[in-house]
Amino acid sequence: MSRIKPARLRQLVFGFYMSGMMSLLMSGVITFINTGMDSAFLYRWIPAFLVAWAVAFPLVTFIAPVAVKLTEMTLGSRLKDSNVP
């Protein structure tokens, strides 16, 4: 039996996918803006993506709960008062 709580596992898997997708897209856009598109683009983009993902995954894992709390603080009373499920 796993000792990781389902909510924590969900948070880690979400962080893995979200950080991967955002790192892929952002590193691609920034690499394109900085160096343009040529035959070596992928050779520059892949290392940039790997570095970005290595930084983004732990950050997303630790920052996501803070973002959730800030969202609840910002919209909490509005969400409780609305009829939106």
Results as ranks from 00 to 15, higher is better:
residue 31 T to G: 04
residue 10 R to L: 13
residue 39 S to W: 00
residue 42 L to W: 02
residue 19 S to R: 00
residue 76 G to R: 08
residue 16 F to T: 01
residue 76 G to E: 05
residue 32 F to V: 09
residue 69 K to E: 14
residue 7 A to G: 01
residue 80 K to M: 12
residue 64 A to K: 09
residue 11 Q to C: 03
residue 53 W to N: 06
residue 5 K to S: 14
residue 45 W to Y: 08
residue 28 G to V: 04
residue 19 S to P: 06
residue 66 V to F: 15
residue 74 T to P: 00
residue 43 Y to G: 14
residue 39 S to G: 06
residue 58 P to T: 09
residue 36 G to V: 01
residue 30 I to L: 14
residue 77 S to T: 15
residue 64 A to I: 04
residue 53 W to I: 02
residue 75 L to Q: 13
residue 84 V to F: 12
residue 38 D to G: 14
residue 21 M to Q: 02
residue 77 S to Q: 15
residue 32 F to K: 08
residue 66 V to H: 10
residue 14 F to A: 08
residue 45 W to G: 05
residue 72 E to R: 08
residue 59 L to D: 01
residue 70 L to Q: 14
residue 10 R to M: 10
residue 33 I to N: 03
residue 33 I to S: 05
residue 79 L to F: 14
residue 68 V to L: 10
residue 73 M to F: 08
residue 53 W to R: 04
residue 40 A to E: 15
residue 3 R to C: 11
residue 24 L to E: 02
residue 30 I to M: 11
residue 45 W to K: 08
residue 20 G to A: 04
residue 71 T to P: 01
residue 28 G to N: 00
residue 42 L to R: 01
residue 19 S to I: 02
residue 55 V to D: 00
residue 51 V to L: 12
residue 3 R to P: 00
residue 50 L to H: 03
residue 37 M to E: 05
residue 55 V to Q: 07
residue 1 M to K: 05
residue 10 R to A: 15
residue 75 L to G: 00
residue 10 R to D: 03
residue 82 S to W: 05
residue 63 I to L: 14
residue 40 A to W: 04
residue 49 F to Q: 03
residue 57 F to C: 06
residue 14 F to T: 09
residue 12 L to P: 04
residue 32 F to C: 11
residue 54 A to T: 10
residue 42 L to P: 00
residue 82 S to A: 15
residue 47 P to V: 06
residue 61 T to H: 07
residue 61 T to C: 09
residue 53 W to C: 09
residue 58 P to C: 07
residue 44 R to F: 01
residue 14 F to Q: 09
residue 38 D to S: 12
residue 59 L to K: 03
residue 85 P to L: 12
residue 3 R to T: 13
residue 65 P to E: 11
residue 25 L to A: 14
residue 16 F to K: 03
residue 37 M to W: 11
residue 35 T to E: 12
residue 29 V to Y: 13
residue 69 K to R: 15
residue 15 G to K: 06
residue 50 L to P: 02
residue 25 L to N: 04
residue 38 D to W: 04
residue 49 F to H: 03
residue 84 V to W: 07
residue 1 M to F: 11
residue 40 A to Y: 11
residue 63 I to E: 06
